[in-house]
Design a protein around this nucleic acid. Structure first.
Lengths: 114, 114
DNA sequence: AATTCAATTAAACAATTGCTGAATTGATGA
DNA sequence: TCATCAATTCAGCAATTGTTTAATTGAATT
């Protein structure tokens, strides 16, 4: 009987053909995904994709404490998912750019296909 | 002196205007992000976006143990990021669809802007 | 300057996650 | 059937993460 084709990678010595994705790109891109990879943070991002909002408003809407919201926003901001501006006592957040909005739309779309 | 405009959300009672993103969507989309939100898993996804590959090959390329790779792939598969097919002793994985490839490209692009 | 409200930060704790080595399953060939 | 190789599963451990309460910072008003 004819045997099945051997695993192509038995030429284990030659990895030249497949360049590893560079480590820094992986790390920073993964950090971006990780920031959005938590329901409560993603929820904030989705809300802020619709309209700019201050921390207190967000806390009311999602019914959670200020420190929680603030910490989530801090992480989202570190990954440049949201930007903030202060206006008097309030700090307003919004989505950084359409790039991110597109990313979120794609993910929600994919998730919806289940 | 003119005082700064009040926070728009002092009408705290009326949240009708801002519908909460539905919880299930948030959870499933977040799960997708979380799966990609780990450098070693994202690395696998990026490699598999370029070509189909079996577990042993992947282990060689990223220089890690079979159980590690297998567990990562399992999670990626659970989120429908990759698909697998068995061929004899080997199980080959590849990216599920271009949807995901696009998602990854966007993220890497965004990360590169830093 | 003192008060008040918004937001952030800090520290401690609980829960989740990823990794490691051993055991197990699946499939082929002797 | 037995031996072998690929892949998965399992259980225990270490590290990371998210939450909570309290304390602190920042800005405006009196």
């Amino acid at each position: 009987m004819q045997s099945l084709p051997e695993c192509q990678a038995d030429d284990h010595e030659d990895n030249r053909a497949i360049p590893l994705p560079d480590e820094i790109s992986c790390n920073t891109a993964a950090a971006l995904f990780r920031a959005l990879g938590e329901p409560s943070r993603l929820q904030l991002a989705i809300i802020l994709a619709q309209q700019e909002m201050c921390v207190t408003q967000l806390a009311k809407i999602v019914n959670d404490s200020l420190p929680s919201i603030s910490q989530r926003l801090k992480l989202l901001k570190a990954e440049r998912i949201v930007t903030s501006r202060r206006e008097g006592k309030h700090v307003f957040y919004k989505l950084d750019d359409d790039h991110i909005a597109q990313l979120i739309r794609n993910a929600v779309e994919h998730a919806g296909e289940k």
